[in-house]
Deep mutational scan, measured.
Amino acid sequence: MAAGGDHGSPDSYRSPLASRYASPEMCFVFSDRYKFRTWRQLWLWLAEAEQTLGLPITDEQIQEMKSNLENIDFKMAAEEEKRLRHDVMAHVHTFGHCCPKAAGIIHLGATSCYVGDNTDLIILRNALDLLLPKLARVISRLADFAKERASLPTLGFTHFQPAQLTTVGKRCCLWIQDLCMDLQNLKRVRDDLRFRGVKGTTGTQASFLQLFEGDDHKVEQLDKMVTEKAGFKRAFIITGQTYTRKVDIEVLSVLASLGASVHKICTDIRLLANLKEMEEPFEKQQIGSSAMPYKRNPMRSERCCSLARHLMTLVMDPLQTASVQWFERTLDDSANRRICLAEAFLTADTILNTLQNISEGLVVYPKVIERRIRQELPFMATENIIMAMVKAGGSRQDCHEKIRVLSQQAASVVKQEGGDNDLIERIQVDAYFSPIHSQLDHLLDPSSFTGRASQQVQRFLEEEVYPLLKPYESVMKVKAELCL
């Protein structure tokens, strides 16, 4: 049975990233139509530049190519590739079939990587351009969430054990800070992308030097003109047959890092959902379990974690691919890159769409948070109580021993009897502590235990987050809708 299948058929496997999760716009960027249309555009740009620099290419040939950029006979191309065992030459023939007058000058002087690699770089750039505003929107939604809850005390956790208090907004800023680093890295790697350009079979530009009869300047002009037509500021000066596969490492490393950030955020949300302090959106008709109707599973956060793990592992592909590119190139890269580049971007696209949807509907339960604080705060307040007693004339050592005994009794009630923490009640009825009984409410005010959390939130948002989001103001209103 021949390899390949009808990918629109229910009898043929289709990647869930495309069929179930990723956005239509990201799927289109990695589609065959987008790819092969870009090949034709690159052939047109090459012909236009070659004509401008004096090669015998007519206006009629150029116009014929322009008129057929979208006229792609995919069936013919597939048949040609089956016959020739070469995808680029299959599309040269297919393009030439609908451009008979231009057929002889299509791909003039070029090698397969002229269309293959340059198209990949265009796709990487455009895919990054799709991700950047999506990530900015996630940051914006979380920034709104953090600002609104900047002063809401909550129990902090280290080692997932109760620690000092923080605020809900401050905790959210930990998430935002990681995503801001990801946004900066995505922008950097996007701006650092260079075009492969017009380089020939081993990167020496020998074929173009021959076409222009040894004119170095025209060869350099050709490279520059096509690079500018493709919208790049610069091209690699040095290439082998391909652009260095280190570029793929750079791009997928940034995406993998984004995956790590999203995994951490969504894990926190899942843990908070278990504590009943916070939940992701839950639709009115949504079913959490087929057997347990009360369940409210954090399905979206779980999906993000599941896909983020996949995204983090994909960076190993370009690392290994770059390491086995012998001399000017081997074909070890080809099949692998067809999979890992598309999957990385479709996965990143999915987790950003999902995280935006989550961040637009996060639900906080202040009463649950308050109750958990009441359970733990008495123990945390013991040092403040000791200091207040010393100020009232008591002995630190005597007070410490009193607190120690009462704390152990209260802990026994919590752990052995399943009761509430009654340390404060014990202190309130103990005559030894009568000098500070009137101060206990103040000493137990949760806001006095959150330090500068709310001020940190305000400063972080104003100095770091809002300036970073400013270039994306025009796209901030787009909502994230999930079908599944």
Rank of each mutant, 00 (worst) to 15 (best):
I385D: 03
S31W: 03
G104S: 12
F208E: 02
M316F: 11
I123D: 02
A143N: 08
H7N: 13
P133I: 15
A78Y: 11
Q221N: 12
D441F: 15
L69G: 12
L121M: 09
S323P: 02
H7A: 09
F212G: 05
N384C: 11
M299E: 02
A291T: 02
N336T: 14
D11K: 12
E463W: 12
I139V: 12
G259T: 04
D87R: 01
H107F: 03
I386P: 01
K147Y: 12
R396T: 03
G156A: 10
R337S: 01
C483G: 15
T158K: 02
E280G: 03
N274V: 08
I105Q: 12
K391N: 14
D398F: 09
H91W: 06
G451L: 04
S261L: 02
R396Q: 01
R83G: 14
Q456Y: 03
C399N: 06
L84C: 06
G259K: 00
V363G: 05
D422F: 12
V465E: 03
R196N: 06
L46V: 06
I287K: 01
L468S: 14
D333W: 00
T167R: 01
D420P: 04
G259R: 00
Y294M: 03
K170A: 04
M76D: 12
T52N: 11
Q241I: 00
D333E: 03
S289W: 00
L377K: 01
Y466A: 11
H159M: 03
I105G: 09
E473Y: 15
T267I: 12
K284V: 11
L44R: 07
I265W: 13
A335S: 14
H7G: 05
R149Y: 14
L142S: 06
G54H: 09
T354V: 13
L165V: 12
R245P: 01
G214S: 12
A206I: 06
R303G: 02
E277T: 04
I62F: 06
L440E: 02
I436M: 06
R426S: 09
A78F: 09
R245K: 07
A235K: 07
K35Y: 05
K415W: 03
Y34F: 08
R337M: 03
T347F: 13
D182I: 01
Q286S: 01
T313I: 08
R171I: 00
A335E: 01
A22K: 08
G8E: 15
G96E: 11
L132C: 14
V405S: 12
I123N: 07
Y466P: 06
A102Y: 04
F449C: 02
E425K: 10
M292P: 03
V189G: 13
E462D: 14
A77D: 15
M389W: 02
V390H: 07
R83K: 08
D117G: 05
P56H: 15
E60V: 10
L444K: 04
H442P: 07
L271G: 05
N185L: 11
R452I: 10
D117W: 00
Q286M: 01
Q241N: 00
A3S: 10
C304D: 04
K276C: 04
T313A: 13
L484G: 15
T227P: 06
N353E: 14
S9P: 14
E280N: 00
L183G: 05
R83E: 11
V315W: 08
R85L: 10
A335P: 08
P133K: 14
E328A: 04
N353T: 08
W326T: 05
D11T: 07
S19C: 14
D6I: 14
M278L: 13
K170I: 00
C340N: 15
K82S: 10
E50A: 07
L193M: 14
I105Y: 08
D268G: 10
T52S: 11
T111D: 00
Q320W: 09
A90Q: 02
E70T: 14
K229M: 07
L255V: 10
F195V: 06
I62S: 04
V429C: 13
C99G: 07
K147Q: 14
S407V: 02
E250P: 13
K170S: 02
I122F: 10
G451H: 01
W175L: 04
G394R: 11
L258P: 01
M76H: 10
E250M: 08
R196A: 13
W326P: 00
K470A: 13
T239D: 00
S412E: 14
E148Y: 06
